[in-house]
Write a protein that binds this DNA or RNA. Structure first.
Length: 342
DNA sequence: GACATTTGACCGAT
DNA sequence: ATCGGTCAAATGTC
């Protein structure tokens, strides 16, 4: 079958080039690390790594000749310099069914990898699948699951390898601008004397990463619902304790017990994920947060400074959530802790 | 009910 | 005309 001298598929070549690049970067990192080692064997290790780097460099320069064509790495219209995608073509309004603004392929730099797992630490949402001309396997199209809530434009295409069924050719487009809950360091906003929490909040500060709200998003669900709770009493303020939130129950490791949401009266929640849309970071959302339940609540504090806020209806005591950019939560200071998408 | 996936249709590029 | 990427309605799952 494959013995007829066919060219290496572009995607495989691209993957190979990318692997070389990554290998070289890794080796370079390792070299730096070795140079910092206080070990008599380090110089020898550095020489070995240097050799590896040389080999990699020469292999890459050899590929570079035809590599320009090979590389999806540097797609023709790759807009790294030109500011990304070319201007959107006018949306066809002729059709009464579907209209769209296209972002065509090859408009952004891509990064192709061959992996044996589809789990890359991000949560993806599949939005299409196509049979591809010279491929035996269909290609699946994914976008970051945080596209809707954070405007993350990362995408990937996944195709089973033609040569090795157990492997996938994964091509990434765009970069993640979202914050994955599992990778976010807990954000703790210490209440300074000047920006004291509201009376009833008793200094409880809760921060969380981007959330998808509903506890149903497969692997992300668990981490999405992590809450970090800082007790507001005395020295405990400086103690960060990890809390796990399942539905309405919050476990506080410092408290050593489960707390019901209702007990967290007036806690201030600071997050990075605009549950609503990225354009509404300054909106107070009481009824339309896509995932958050709605209802009335504390309001005052949570909404102060312009975080998008929504409130759980099940919380008669008015636990408030501030969702979205922290913004100038305590005044006019432009003290955003999270960069928000335009 | 909310969210994810499937799948046929649409549409721009080639 | 064909291909590939995306949309969005229908469907499935929790």
């Amino acid at each position: 079958m494959a013995s007829s001298g066919r060219d290496v598929p572009a995607e495989r070549a691209t993957a190979a080039v990318n692997d070389l690049i990554e290998a070289r970067e890794g080796a370079a990192t390792l070299r730096i690390f070795l140079l910092q080692l206080d070990d008599h064997r380090a110089p020898h290790a550095v020489r070995v790594v240097d050799g590896v780097l040389d080999r990699l460099s020469s292999a890459m320069s050899a590929l570079e000749v035809s590599g320009a064509a090979v590389a999806g790495v540097q797609s023709p219209a790759a807009g790294s310099g030109s500011g990304g995608p070319r201007p959107q073509l006018s949306v066809s309004s002729s059709g009464n069914k579907k209209k769209r603004s296209f972002s065509r392929r090859s408009q952004r730099a891509s990064d192709t990898k061959i992996t044996d797992t589809l789990d890359d630490g991000h949560v993806w949402r599949k939005y299409g699948q196509k049979d591809i001309q010279n491929s035996t396997h269909p290609r699946s199209y994914y976008r970051c699951t945080h596209k809707s809530d954070q405007g993350c434009n990362a995408k990937r295409q996944v195709q089973s390898s033609d040569t090795d069924q157990s492997k996938y050719v994964v091509t990434y487009y765009g970069k993640h601008t979202c914050r994955d809950p599992s990778t976010i360091p807990p954000l703790v906003v210490h209440a300074a004397a000047g920006d004291a929490p509201p009376d009833h909040a008793a200094g409880n500060l809760i921060s969380f990463g981007p959330i998808s709200i509903a506890n149903n998003t497969s692997s992300a669900a668990a981490s999405s619902s992590q809450l970090y709770l800082v007790s507001g009493s005395g020295a405990a303020v400086d103690q960060l304790s990890t809390s796990w939130c399942a539905s309405d129950d919050v476990f506080s490791s410092s408290a050593g017990s489960f707390m019901h949401m209702d007990e967290l009266i007036g806690a201030v929640v600071v997050g990075s994920a605009p549950v609503v849309t990225t354009t509404s970071t300054a909106a107070v959302v009481g009824s339309s947060a896509s995932g958050m339940d709605r209802g009335g609540g504390v309001g005052g504090t949570a909404a102060r400074g312009g975080g998008a806020a929504s409130f759980r209806p099940s919380s008669p005591n008015g636990l408030g959530f501030v969702v979205g950019s922290l913004g100038s939560i305590d005044g006019d200071d432009d003290d955003d802790l999270f960069p928000m998408d335009p």
